[in-house]
């Protein structure tokens, strides 16, 4: 209700876009509506009194049409300004990300080389800081990559590179890595695969991102530990992957916005502060662009199940299409 009332507050809406009242599409639409209604009434009244002078009526209609034309033009140009601002924002993100990526690559490669050369760090604290440097640099790379991916999705310039591969292999790879990283936590993993599971046709690198996002979320929400169960099964024309956790679940209120951009659930703020709130938004966009679907069920206090599907190849061109 509050949201609906808010949408009626034209002045507030205009302020949100940072434009003046006479440049604000919301306000101009209102003015146009008022002019149309009052001109219909005025034409009707004038026509009653001056029905012997049709020229006068025609003149009034002409003047009103001219005014509406001018207002229409202002509305179109304010939309143009909004579109230009959006374009400028995309370009800004693209240029900035590229600029930031150069020093990030330098740091990454230099740390790689130092690690390979096996520099002698006797001090255990210094060693720990060295590992942290590497991890934090990697985190910055992830953030920049997420922003760039968001930019590409919003500009519809996302370039998928689909191939035929085994979703199970990707799951095993990601779970294997997470198992190692979560040795000291109470989170355990279980992977179940149905027999004769077909291969999928999608962008392999991005699918790995989606799988990582969903499994990482399951781990993150398993505050008190528990099992993260991953089930792979064939469904008509697709393979379905579901990830169930026994974590804190998502409140009814948050469930509505879970796939929104920059959305972070209340519970996330409470337990940890990392992340841009982009991961599920990106996962949804990638799965849907690949021809699959994504969804979830969740019960607060009991856990959540996130699932997604990816299409199997259309023609069984590859001899062995099963994994």
């Amino acid at each position: 209700m509050a949201k609906f009332l808010d949408s009626l507050n034209i002045v507030k809406q205009c302020r949100r876009y940072g434009v003046g009242l006479w440049q604000c599409p919301h306000f101009l639409f209102l003015v146009m509506g008022a002019i149309i209604i009052s001109s219909i009434i005025a034409t009707y009244l004038t026509a009653q009194w001056f029905f012997t002078e049709p020229q006068l009526i025609a003149l009034i209609v002409l003047v009103v049409a001219a005014i509406l034309f001018v207002i229409g033009h202002i509305i179109v140009s304010s939309f143009e300004r909004v579109a230009e601002a959006s374009l400028a924002k995309s370009e800004f993100v693209a240029i900035m990300s590229h600029q930031i990526k150069t020093p990030l690559s330098i740091i990454k490669w230099q740390l790689n080389l130092l690690k390979e050369k096996g520099i002698k760090i006797e001090d255990s604290e210094a060693k720990k800081f060295f590992i942290h440097l590497d991890e934090e640099n990697q985190r910055m790379i992830h953030i920049v990559n997420d922003l760039l991916e968001l930019n590409r999705i919003e500009d519809s310039t996302i370039f998928l590179n689909p191939s035929v591969f085994s979703l199970k292999e990707i799951i095993d790879e990601v779970v294997g890595r997470r198992r190692k990283e979560n040795l000291n936590t109470n989170v355990s993993f279980e992977v179940k695969t149905s027999e004769n599971l077909p291969l999928v046709f999608a962008d392999k690198i991005r699918t790995r991102d989606v799988v990582s996002h969903i499994i990482d979320n399951a781990i993150r929400y398993s505050i008190n530990g528990g099992k993260v169960a991953i089930i792979l099964q064939g469904v008509p024309k697709c393979v379905c992957c579901s990830v169930r956790d026994e974590g804190i679940g998502i409140s009814k209120e948050d469930q509505k916005r879970i796939f929104s951009k920059f959305f972070r659930a209340e519970s996330v703020y409470k337990y940890q502060t990392q992340g841009l709130g982009l991961r599920l938004y990106l996962a949804k966009a990638i799965v849907e662009a690949s021809g699959g679907k994504i969804g979830f069920t969740s019960q607060e206090g009991k856990g959540s199940t996130f699932w997604f599907t990816l299409p199997v190849p259309k023609n069984n061109l590859i001899g062995n299409n099963y994994q």
């Binding site: 150069t102 990454k108 080389l113 760039l148 370039f159």
Partner: peptide
């Protein structure tokens, strides 16, 4: 390169490059 737009990748691939690697996404190894 760290340029990663689909347009750039496509252009390079059409010019016959062997692979296109984003610097930040690959380790030295």
């Amino acid at each position: 390169s760290n340029l990663e737009s689909g347009k750039d990748i496509e252009r390079c691939l059409s010019l016959g490059v062997r692979s296109y690697l984003a610097k930040t996404n690959y380790s030295l190894e």
